[in-house]
Design a protein around this nucleic acid. Structure first.
Lengths: 348, 348
DNA sequence: AGATTCTCTGCAAACGTGTGCACCTTCGCA
DNA sequence: TGCGAAGGTGCACACGTTTGCAGAGAATCT
């Protein structure tokens, strides 16, 4: 590796002059400057950022820790964050925490050891696991911003999607379409996602639509979804609409309804949550709730950059809440005429 | 930030002793060692990797540059690579090159400046754009391994999927099912993907199945796929099977066939390539070709680690080719009885 | 008791930069 | 001619580590 010293020798100057010349310092004679720059170019000189970082006591690096990457929500965040971080002139150091507590702590420690200027931490299904660690690091002056739902973290900067309002809009949509017998499939992994349910419930209650416990079914994988769907279809009065906690679950619901010969949305309305690309791959296209990942990601890095720039680590923590919006597509429609409903009611 | 010196003062020893104690050196008296370690713990000391890296002239960092992350193939690679890199005790530095030449070059330069120990470079749709740059860096002693198809890069380590053999298997599968009128939709972005077509063609030729030019249609987005599908259906003798270059295209083909009232696989067989998760989200599940991403990723980092460990940068370049295998699912079936075909033929 | 070995610790020199300060030259001006 | 200012360059230190080497005691051997 060629160093400043090497170029200095070639140019017959000191390494300080070379350093200044390459930094385009006005202190250096324009001609020498040009000569040195040319020499450095020919020699294929590339500054040693490790040495530089040590000297200037900053790495211009931001750490991004994300649970995993097979859930397509995270790649989207990574892409957006990477773009914005680069625009701001920072490097990105990615860590996959694998949603295991030990690994999340290890990622944070590694980033700290590498003297990242700040950390963006996306919480996984279980919320933030290393809260103690995070608080300590923030107190010690390392800016950290969270994305996702974390309980009792008022003193930490955070961006969150407003799951409650998304759930509410979804509920209203179904009620407005005329649905009265509605089922829910899925299982909230942590508090934030649970809010979807609260909003959803509120919408139904406002219109006095009942949501009996026997149609709120927990399911997490394909097998369980299959059982849930069959369970719902076997009811004396099957629901006319199903709310799946996540788009990926909705896709599974599609599959099992299809196998059972139920047509969407003619015989059954299905709605999801997340607005993954998947939502437009499946047929009919899924009505769902968009998480507004762009503003989410933008605020995420904006908050961190703000923290990094203003060295005031004691400023009050900010919580940014981004409200998602419903995306109505082809999977939701009014229930199949009232005649059938009345027949049912007559029977009971 | 607390430094070795700080702990040294607290412990009443020199910073060298602290350094050795924390590195668990046998030179240090077990009792002092323990005392120092405890002190360091209490003070919340974390080694400054920047300083350390400068001193030991190695960063234990591997750079991974990937075109983008919205195509789900890449996240899968990222995940697998990240796991293996971590297992080997290295850090990962992710760069998204955005498939623009300028950006790819910038990523490589940045990694070099940060003194990454090696670079894993995944080529995008256009193949390797910064070939000159890469050759230069390798010559200068920085190990680089490529993933994807690159023409005329014999002297560079590389892992590639064997697209030709995948295409061949797919072709045989269709022929064996009895299909004789087969169409192709898609557009190979670079040479590697073009090989899918070569293998596919070979399989058809072996069985003397014709592939006229008017059923080999280039398409890249939803709009174009729509036109292609309609074009095929409007033929006097529409095909009985469609080979989509990528799973994502196959999903679009599904959609437009569905809109046209064509049932898969009863009226039309559809096969794809890639075996994305998507392939099992859509209904019916897609017959496709699996890229064997696990061995691909494993070989990818294995090759690089080998290069890094053996400092012999002049060793001959290795090319690892991983053959994919066909995954037969529900979207492919024999053509719909011969009666329909004969009707058509009688008509002409 | 003296010599030798062993155990532990500190000194000091790197690694490759950036930068305050002093210095030297040149120039303009009184 | 003398002097101050301006412009350009080098010296030397610092950033926080790791590590070869020397050296001080203690322990062991002859």
């Amino acid at each position: 590796m060629v160093t400043l010293e090497d170029i200095a020798r070639k140019a017959g100057v000191s390494h300080s002059t070379v350093s200044r010349a390459l930094a385009d310092s006005p202190l250096i004679n324009p001609e020498t400057k040009k000569r040195i720059q040319q020499l450095a170019d020919e020699a294929g000189y590339q500054v040693n950022q490790v040495a530089r970082n040590l000297k200037v006591r900053s790495t211009r690096t931001i750490g991004l820790v994300v649970p995993e990457v097979s859930n397509p929500f995270y790649p989207r965040i990574i892409q957006l964050v990477a773009d914005r971080v680069r625009e701001a002139g920072y490097n990105l150091q990615l860590h996959l925490s694998g949603a295991e507590q030990e690994s999340e702590v290890a990622s944070l420690a590694s980033l700290r050891e590498h003297r990242a200027d700040g950390i963006l931490l996306v919480t996984g299904e279980h919320g933030l696991v290393a809260k103690e660690q995070v608080s300590k690091m923030i107190r010690s002056g390392l800016p950290i911003v969270l994305m996702g739902w974390v309980e009792g973290a008022d003193q930490i900067d955070m961006v969150t999607g407003n799951d409650a309002s998304g759930g509410y809009e979804l509920g209203r949509h179904l009620v407005d379409l005329g649905h009265r017998r509605i089922a829910v499939i899925g299982k909230p992994p942590h508090r934030g996602v649970y809010d979807r349910m609260l909003g959803f419930r509120r919408a139904l209650e406002e219109s006095s639509v009942d949501l009996p416990e026997n149609v709120v079914l927990p399911a997490r994988d394909g097998h369980q979804v299959r059982d849930c769907v069959h369970q719902l279809l076997a009811l004396a009065e099957p629901p006319t609409a199903i709310f799946a906690y996540q788009d990926s679950l909705a896709a599974l619901v599609y599959k099992h309804l299809d196998e059972a010969g139920i047509s969407i949305p003619r015989d059954m309305t299905v709605v999801g949550f997340d607005d993954l690309d998947l939502a437009t791959y499946i047929s009919p296209h899924l009505t769902t709730v968009g998480l507004h990942t762009e503003p989410l990601a933008s605020e995420f890095v904006r908050l961190l950059l703000e923290r990094i720039r203003s060295k005031a680590s004691d400023a009050a923590a900010q919580h940014v809440v981004i409200s998602p919006r419903i995306v109505v597509r082809a999977s939701s429609a009014p229930p199949r005429g009232t005649s059938l409903v009345q027949t049912h009611e007559a029977r009971t």
